[in-house]
Design a protein around this nucleic acid. Structure first.
Lengths: 246, 246
DNA sequence: AGGGTGACCCGTACACCGTTCGGAACGGTG
DNA sequence: CACCGTTCCGAACGGTGTACGGGTCACCCT
């Protein structure tokens, strides 16, 4: 009479299935755990089955709270956007500092969650999560209260995040690849070097850049390259401003 | 004596296996067909099995020419980079036009192959394909022959492609999503509108941008936004230049 | 009190994926 | 003619996302 497999499925042995005082799973919980997996092991490691196991749930139990894996990722992405704080400008020329700080905040968020790079191409700004929208609103506020017309504030925002995303993308991809390889940046670098040296050889100017980068050490050089580019862009944005308003 | 399954494995029934006068498959051929699939049906549609079928080959026949699906994609990506032409600057202030044209060339290539957006995050500039390197070399030449020091040429290049990639990424993601949906941009837009309107409602400045975009029509507006941002960036780069050299 | 209802959970199953493996077919070489 | 290295491929392994249907409960309405 025993059910197949289980030795003694007697009523008494059953662990008294937990009361459903409240739903065992919630969207928040699912999103949080997915984010944890993504940060710890990267995009490829996130499977619905593993997510279910981590939540002490079945493989398909999340589908009542989330329609799709894609939708789940969209939710997680918006969660990350929630980490980004856009400051208000202080003083008449505070917009520059505020914009710089915003750019760094975005960059930091992406670098904290390098899997984002692999996901942006599928979703990008097509999503309408509350946190992206809030971030956009704050950024528009930053520029519009600093002598930019609404139109110019729009291009300022778009240009800024285009630069930040584009610049951070390759860094994040590097970090993600690094994480997948279970190696130091140094080890990984050492392993790459010979191939890179050889590949770069026929291109003298690229080679020169490459050699320069070798001396600085890639980690700092990445950050300061970002800052240089950011300053170039802020210089450009300054010309767009109508300094009348404060 | 018949092999199991096959009714009559007689020599005569055999389709006279094609002479191997030259290897039936080549890396070029594989990459070309993969590119065709990617352009026609997007990243998700590219499977090794389908690729094999398209090439009148078995599902695993490509593995002698390419070690990995990832490596295959890397090859295809470099193929696309090969489409991009970087002009030399003409005249003393020609660098601006040349840079602008380069930016447009990159953007056009990405928009022609929107699946690139989904792939850049996995590979980005970590790859060392000949075409990326050639492109970089040409771009460095552009700036270095136009009054930029080698260091400044480096940041100029990095900043420019960061902006272009970041800005085009979201456009490409939009196009890719569009392609997946088998709908017009108009139909798709119409389907999105209500949700977008509602989502945007609590954010007045975002809403304003959104309404402005609605009038222009998204297609042109995307292009002109890019141009505006590009000009901002070129203004910034102009300040970096040391106009002494020509 | 008790029957109905609807939300939730999950075992099973399907179609597909990338890739490994072993062997078959072949051109060229000894 | 025997051998060898390369290329091709059928079968199989261990995964994937998710549709489906049935089970289980908390709650509500008689």
């Amino acid at each position: 009479m025993a059910a197949k497999g289980q030795p003694y499925p007697s009523v008494w042995a059953r662990p008294e299935r937990r009361r459903r005082e409240q739903p065992a799973l919630s969207r928040e919980q699912i999103v949080a755990e997915a984010l944890a997996i993504l940060d710890a092991e990267g995009l490829e490691a996130l499977s619905m089955r593993k997510l279910g196991t981590r939540l002490n749930a079945g493989a398909t139990s999340m589908y009542s709270h989330v329609t799709n894996k894609d939708e789940l990722i969209e939710l997680v992405l918006d969660e990350v956007y929630g980490e980004i704080r856009i400051p208000l400008p202080e003083g008449p020329d505070g917009w520059r500092e505020a914009a710089r700080s915003s750019a760094h905040a975005v960059r930091a968020a992406v670098l904290r969650h390098p899997w984002m790079a692999s996901v942006l191409g599928d979703i990008a700004l097509a999503s309408l999560g509350p946190n992206v929208l809030r971030m956009s609103e704050d950024m528009l506020t930053l520029f519009e209260t600093s002598g930019f017309t609404p139109e110019h504030a729009g291009t300022a925002m778009n240009t800024l995040i285009a630069f930040v995303m584009g610049g951070t993308l390759s860094e994040a991809a590097w970090l993600a690849g690094l994480a997948r390889s279970d190696q130091d940046e140094e080890q990984w670098m050492a392993r790459m070097m010979p191939a890179a040296e050889a590949a770069v050889l026929p291109y003298p100017r690229v080679r020169r850049q490459f050699d320069a980068l070798k001396e600085t050490g890639s980690e700092q050089s990445r950050g300061s390259e970002f800052d240089l580019g950011l300053d170039v862009l802020l210089d450009g944005l300054a010309l767009l401003r109508t300094p009348a308003a404060g």
